[in-house]
Amino acid sequence: MMNSNDTADKFAVIETLYRFAAGIDLRDRELLASAFVENAVSDFGPAAAKAGFEYPLLQGREVIVAALSDSLSGFDTTHSVSNPRVSLDGDKARLEAIVEAQHLPSNDHSRHYLMKNRYDVQLARQGEVWRIERVTVDNVWRTGDLAVLAVV
């Protein structure tokens, strides 16, 4: 049976992915950075491969924040998190969720690229806050104009 501490931790773990998504969508680098440990790893490779391109493994919070912020600067995006499942193990956690990522060129909302992705996230508690140690993103399906992603 789950106790109230487990419930609070599970919500806090999910909130970490919300900070990640909101940081991207609001173009708030500080908020985005708050979701990651300093030596975090971000792997969008599986999702990128299904879309037909390569995306490098990103290592380190500053590298991740700069790469995501810069590569998405020409877009209006919305990231919606659903179906989160959290498992806890002391100060470590694993989060699996579905994230829908909509990308529209900032200067042309008549075009879009929409991805439904599976996120596999490993997290660590740092003080009172949970942060991402590693995130791997795989694609479930995608639709729209792939050329939109070539805008940047």
Rank of each mutant, 00 (worst) to 15 (best):
S4P: 02
D6C: 07
T7Q: 12
T7G: 08
F11H: 10
A12Q: 06
A12I: 07
T16C: 06
T16N: 02
Y18G: 01
Y18Q: 03
R19V: 00
R19C: 02
F20P: 06
A22S: 14
A22V: 02
L26S: 10
R29L: 01
E30M: 03
E30T: 02
E30K: 08
L32A: 08
A33Y: 01
A33F: 00
S34A: 01
F36T: 05
S42H: 06
D43E: 04
D43I: 01
G45L: 10
A47N: 07
A47Q: 08
A48W: 01
A51R: 10
A51Y: 01
G52S: 04
G52H: 02
G52K: 04
G52T: 02
L58W: 02
Q59E: 12
G60H: 04
G60W: 04
R61T: 14
R61N: 11
R61V: 12
E62R: 07
V65D: 05
V65S: 07
V65M: 08
S69F: 11
S71M: 12
L72G: 10
S73R: 15
D76C: 12
D76W: 06
T78L: 15
T78I: 09
V81C: 10
S82Y: 01
V86G: 08
S87L: 00
A93V: 08
I98S: 05
A101D: 13
Q102R: 02
H103S: 09
H103E: 12
L104D: 01
L104H: 03
L104V: 03
L104M: 06
L104I: 01
S106E: 01
S106H: 00
N107Y: 04
D108K: 00
S110T: 11
H112P: 00
M115S: 06
N117C: 09
V121S: 14
Q122S: 12
G127R: 07
W130H: 03
I132S: 13
E133F: 14
V137I: 11
V140R: 11
R142D: 11
R142A: 14
G144R: 03
D145A: 04
D145G: 04
A147C: 10
L149G: 15
A150M: 14
A150N: 11
